[in-house]
Design a protein around this nucleic acid. Sequence first.
DNA 1: TTGTAGGCGTTATCAA
DNA 2: TTGATAACGCCTACAA
Lengths: 353, 353
Amino acid sequence: MSDKIILKVKRFAIEGRIMAVTIKDVAKYTGLSIATISKYINGGNVLEKNRILIDDAIEKLGFKVNTIARGLKTNKSMTIGILIPTLENIFCTSIISDIENILIQNGYSTIICDYREDGKMEMEKLDFLIGKMVDGIISMPLSITAEKLNNIIDREIPIVLIDRPVRGANCDTVLVDNLNASYNAVEQLIIHGHKRIGIICGPRDIYTANERLKGYLRVHEDYDMQVDSDLIKYGDYKMESGYNMLIDLINSDNPPTAVFVTNYEMTLGAVMAINEKNIKIPEELSFIGFDNLQMAKIVKPSLSIVVQPMKLIAETAADILLQRLKGNGEKTTVMHRLKTELIHGDSICRVKG
Amino acid sequence: MSDKIILKVKRFAIEGRIMAVTIKDVAKYTGLSIATISKYINGGNVLEKNRILIDDAIEKLGFKVNTIARGLKTNKSMTIGILIPTLENIFCTSIISDIENILIQNGYSTIICDYREDGKMEMEKLDFLIGKMVDGIISMPLSITAEKLNNIIDREIPIVLIDRPVRGANCDTVLVDNLNASYNAVEQLIIHGHKRIGIICGPRDIYTANERLKGYLRVHEDYDMQVDSDLIKYGDYKMESGYNMLIDLINSDNPPTAVFVTNYEMTLGAVMAINEKNIKIPEELSFIGFDNLQMAKIVKPSLSIVVQPMKLIAETAADILLQRLKGNGEKTTVMHRLKTELIHGDSICRVKG
DNA sequence: TTGTAGGCGTTATCAA
DNA sequence: TTGATAACGCCTACAA
């Protein structure tokens, strides 16, 4: 049978290496031309008898289009690049998992990259994605410049930023109202009579960290409360700093009666410290954490937590990108600023005296 | 300046769309031939004056090799496909993050795919990766067949399996000794005098779940203890089932005095249940969980936990793949069965009476 | 409906 | 050292 012959040729084409089956093979097998096969694959019309012939050949030979070669020609890869700071952060992975799901339903595949919270690698990975001819990009940026982003956008590769904006970048952005998330959380503590409220912030150069600190400061201002800078601790959004900063706070001369921790990992660390030091929540310390409902529930007592609408962030980002890809996007770029929710647990109590 | 001209040409090449700068452009700009530029890019020798000329042109024009086109020619993409069941599992993401890091240091990029624990999608994503011309694959398989894998391996695309083997697949595998991990954990409970030990297993069709159950059964056998099938609960490796199964166990007519939960998510759920029901650990129930040291520490009392050597899994898998890529690999495939560790917390106590 | 031919950006062969 | 030229696998006018 001629299919066997073709396969044999393939098999021994290059010193035993089995090559991929190409349109050319299908053409040879069917006796039709490459152009005809290609057209059929892309939805063109062929005679019924040829259709059967081609289908049969594709099946028998196990032909698969080489999307790379196709992309080289069409300048479209039907894949979206996703760029995040780290894979070890449930906030990131949860969102991109949802994004991926939506994109797949729309015929797009994704290439997920993490840049290990490293600005240099962020650049490199971005270039890598461009090199892979992605049709669009969803990114949670760290230190990428607007110029770089605009450069890509000028190449007609749409970009949607999540979680953090880049000033001057000409692209859509989906994030949450971090400022008021923080404002509302701290306000809860104030309402419960707390005067000395500690905050464990993220790195000063990260947008969300700044916004959350701003909220803390503004609510103090609005309630005409003075801010004690000793109560403001700067962590690095990682578990250990949450642990260390909390211990710093309770060991200080004039410790706070309540603490607000501004991301998930640091909340984890803070809880570890609290357990280790046998601090009673909320009697000895009122506590509000951030992100990840699951953890809030397994800790006893259940924590009050600021929760970001991760699913909605994912949906919004994916939808916007799909619109841009279709060319339906608005002329101007949009900033979606979604609202967070404050989940009430049992970790806040009224301050005594 | 002629660079401006070239850029202008590019800019208006196709109705305003900015095209990528190619070798051709660099050739034009320098007055050299495409072949020479290409050779230089790939480490060939050129005259010093031309070297400067080319470097200058590349810089000015912002040239980047089109890795797709290159891959089309070389049949190498310098990218590795990584295929995992889900991105919402710290065990998975932690491992692939480490793997990625090692691969990058060796000049490889990665394409990370999750198949959302769906066998059909697992197939599709695998095809997607092949379509992207990956040079190798690291996968945590679900229901992929040996035939399919061998097919890929025959194309000289090496595959390394992690966490779970595929019987009959001709590829290297890195996993842990799940059986003895479980054996040792349950043995601890037996040593502490427990006679009725509950186990919350994973799905029957998942390799690791079976192995962990086998360990439970074998240690019972070795200690000549009868197994009460009511104490064996089958979850689905997700949090909620951990929660439900634990409640099932404690609500049963003859509840266990100790429980072993066999993965991270279910441990999380079980702890939630324990907190909710106000069960005192270890007085009322001895407890051993699985994976993720961080969580074990934030829960009070600290949990005894079976810990997998995730970093080592990552290193081993990456190293093996790199060897195969270099062609240094052994002729035969290897199965690396790494050992787990049992971290002792305060969640086990001697049974009374 | 089908086929021919040219090109996408790169690499590789072989003269020059 | 350099440069024409032919691939790689696919798509797409245009012609038959």
